[in-house]
Design a protein around this nucleic acid. Structure first.
Length: 132
DNA sequence: CTTCTTACA
DNA sequence: TGTAAGGA
């Protein structure tokens, strides 16, 4: 039930996201302006996207390829809060190796993806398998 | 080199 | 949406 923390864990840079989504930085930033996504920021004001942000971006992309405009996309995607709302239960301090491993795995996968000429498309499904 | 914001073609 | 400018 706490997969959300992983889904909303900010760990993708703009570069990673553009390669993952095949969108231009311009579009990604624009969608953020339209409040379709709300990525976190680093101390240096760098955007940090979560898996949910990427997933949402892909939905937006798909929706717009169908000829739906921002307004339409907004209506459809509104309600699926991207941000992780402050939950009471934070039984923290419990060393969750599962998360650590998953984080490492994600980083490894992303390194490979960003380190070579990639061709997304099936990436959505690829990433999804981390959250079955 | 990568990303950020603002602003204009 | 693309891109230039100027900074971090």
């Amino acid at each position: 039930m706490r997969d959300n923390v992983r889904r909303n864990m900010p760990l993708f840079s703009m570069g990673i996201v553009t390669k993952l989504t095949e969108l231009t930085p311009r579009q990604v930033r624009y969608y953020e302006q339209q409040e379709l996504i709300q990525p976190a920021r680093t101390v240096g004001n760098q955007r940090l996207f979560s898996f949910n942000d990427v997933d949402r971006l892909l939905q937006i992309k798909s929706l717009m390829e169908k000829g739906i405009n921002i307004a339409g996309v907004k209506e459809m995607l509104h309600g699926e809060e991207t941000a992780d709302q402050p939950k009471e239960t934070v039984e923290v301090k419990k060393p969750d190796m599962s998360d650590a491993d998953l984080h490492k795995l994600l980083k490894r996968q992303l390194s490979e993806l960003s380190a070579r000429p990639n061709q997304s498309h099936l990436i959505r499904g690829e990433l999804s398998r981390f959250f079955h």
